[in-house]
Simulated scan of single mutants.
Amino acid sequence: MRVFKQIPGLALLRKRPQNQIPFSLAVGQVIKSSDATTREVKVIKMELDDYLKMYFNKSFVFETVDKNSSSKKGDIVLVRKLDKPLTQKKFFSIEKVLFQIDNIIDPITGKKISHDQDEIKKHLEQLSQLYN
């Protein structure tokens, strides 16, 4: 066994243990809602590559608990580590929905943006009349 520990580069092949959590608070995107209160959230973290001395994106996918059932697929959420995990897979809970995917508000007018094509054409005509 000692011989294998001395092989250079063997530490790179070892995987991180599954129960080791790399952060306690993170921002992620809901990629799947499998249950009424269970969401899968993808979190991207920058990790340093010691050999290249550069940071690269590393993504983590976690099952989280959404007690209020307020998030949907595509939403950007704030996740916090639970004090006591509910199951072996659920270590995080969704604390707050930061951006809803279907509730886009125009920062200039403060109105909700509609995805209706007729309203978009009408809005473009109004803008063209203003600038002509």
Rank of each mutant, 00 (worst) to 15 (best):
residue 54 M to I: 10
residue 42 K to I: 04
residue 90 K to M: 05
residue 4 F to I: 15
residue 19 N to K: 05
residue 7 I to W: 00
residue 66 D to S: 08
residue 11 A to Y: 08
residue 51 Y to L: 15
residue 46 M to W: 10
residue 22 P to N: 05
residue 3 V to Y: 15
residue 65 V to G: 08
residue 82 L to Y: 01
residue 110 G to L: 05
residue 1 M to T: 10
residue 12 L to D: 14
residue 75 D to N: 13
residue 115 H to E: 11
residue 104 I to T: 09
residue 125 E to G: 05
residue 63 E to D: 10
residue 7 I to N: 09
residue 79 V to E: 03
residue 84 K to T: 14
residue 37 T to I: 10
residue 101 I to L: 04
residue 64 T to K: 03
residue 6 Q to I: 08
residue 77 V to G: 05
residue 86 L to T: 09
residue 27 V to T: 08
residue 123 H to N: 04
residue 38 T to C: 04
residue 115 H to M: 11
residue 87 T to W: 02
residue 112 K to Y: 01
residue 122 K to L: 11
residue 5 K to M: 14
residue 77 V to D: 00
residue 56 F to L: 06
residue 107 P to H: 04
residue 12 L to G: 11
residue 43 V to A: 08
residue 68 N to A: 13
residue 21 I to H: 06
residue 120 I to K: 12
residue 26 A to V: 07
residue 19 N to T: 05
residue 118 D to N: 13
residue 118 D to A: 15
residue 127 L to P: 00
residue 87 T to M: 06
residue 36 A to I: 09
residue 4 F to P: 00
residue 87 T to P: 05
residue 4 F to T: 11
residue 88 Q to S: 08
residue 93 S to L: 09
residue 112 K to Q: 15
residue 23 F to P: 06
residue 105 I to P: 01
residue 118 D to T: 12
residue 97 V to T: 14
residue 131 Y to T: 09
residue 116 D to Y: 03
residue 23 F to R: 07
residue 57 N to Q: 14
residue 76 I to H: 07
residue 103 N to S: 13
residue 44 I to G: 04
residue 132 N to I: 06
residue 119 E to T: 06
residue 40 E to R: 00
residue 80 R to D: 12
residue 13 L to V: 02
residue 48 L to A: 03
residue 91 F to W: 12
residue 48 L to K: 12
residue 14 R to H: 12
residue 56 F to Y: 11
residue 76 I to S: 06
residue 10 L to A: 13
residue 12 L to Y: 14
